[in-house]
Amino acid sequence: MAVHEHKAKTVSARCMIITISDTRTEASDKSGKLMQEFLEQEGHQVIAKEIIPDEIDDIKEQIEIGCKDPEIDVILTNGGTGIAPRDVTVETVQSILEKEIPGFGEIFRMLSYQEDIGSAAILSRAIAGVRESTAIFSTPGSSGAVRLAMNKLILPELSHVVREIKKL
């Protein structure tokens, strides 16, 4: 079966969006809103949306809630991926994944490098993987990073990822 045939079957993913930030509010959460817009434009559903502080326990708790909810197929986080001491998203997500998808972060950095970010792309941390048949994608919190990840990586593969982990 050709790759395009394998990916052709569209599945509407049921998603949870988690914005990880010490400063964002519902009014200022541009990246969470952008994720929701992109998902809904592609026919996916946003089941839950949260804004939480950049704290290991809060991140773990929200991801666990999403993974245990049979109505959620995919968790998308934005924020907390930098290299500052308060940025703990990548380490927290990595510690709870059962299977990592290393190509996500690798290609995200390559695309970031190519899109005028240049060598600063080495600071871009992103991670994806699977836990309890739930896909998890973690992106930086800037709207540019979210737009890049959603358009070039997440949306083109979302149905495919959900079918694989759910075996639909």
Rank of each mutant, 00 (worst) to 15 (best):
G80M: 13
G80P: 11
T81S: 04
T81A: 05
G82H: 03
G82R: 14
I83Y: 08
I83C: 04
I83D: 01
I83A: 03
A84W: 03
A84F: 05
A84K: 15
A84G: 04
P85G: 13
D87C: 07
D87F: 01
V88W: 07
V88N: 15
T89L: 06
T89C: 07
T89R: 14
V90S: 02
V90I: 15
V90N: 06
V90L: 09
T92L: 02
T92S: 03
T92Y: 02
I96F: 00
L97A: 00
L97S: 02
E98I: 05
E98H: 12
E98A: 04
E98K: 14
K99Y: 15
K99M: 15
K99T: 14
K99N: 15
E100I: 13
E100N: 11
I101K: 10
I101H: 10
I101V: 15
I101A: 12
P102H: 03
P102T: 06
P102K: 09
P102Q: 11
F104P: 07
F104R: 14
F104Q: 14
G105V: 05
E106F: 06
E106H: 06
F108M: 11
R109N: 08
M110H: 14
L111C: 02
L111T: 01
S112A: 06
S112G: 04
Y113P: 09
E115P: 01
E115Y: 07
D116M: 08
I117P: 03
I117V: 13
G118H: 02
G118S: 03
G118I: 00
S119N: 13
S119W: 05
A120I: 05
A121V: 00
I122Q: 13
I122N: 10
I122K: 15
I122C: 10
S124G: 06
S124E: 06
R125W: 03
A126N: 11
A126I: 12
I127L: 07
A128K: 12
G129F: 00
V130Y: 08
V130G: 10
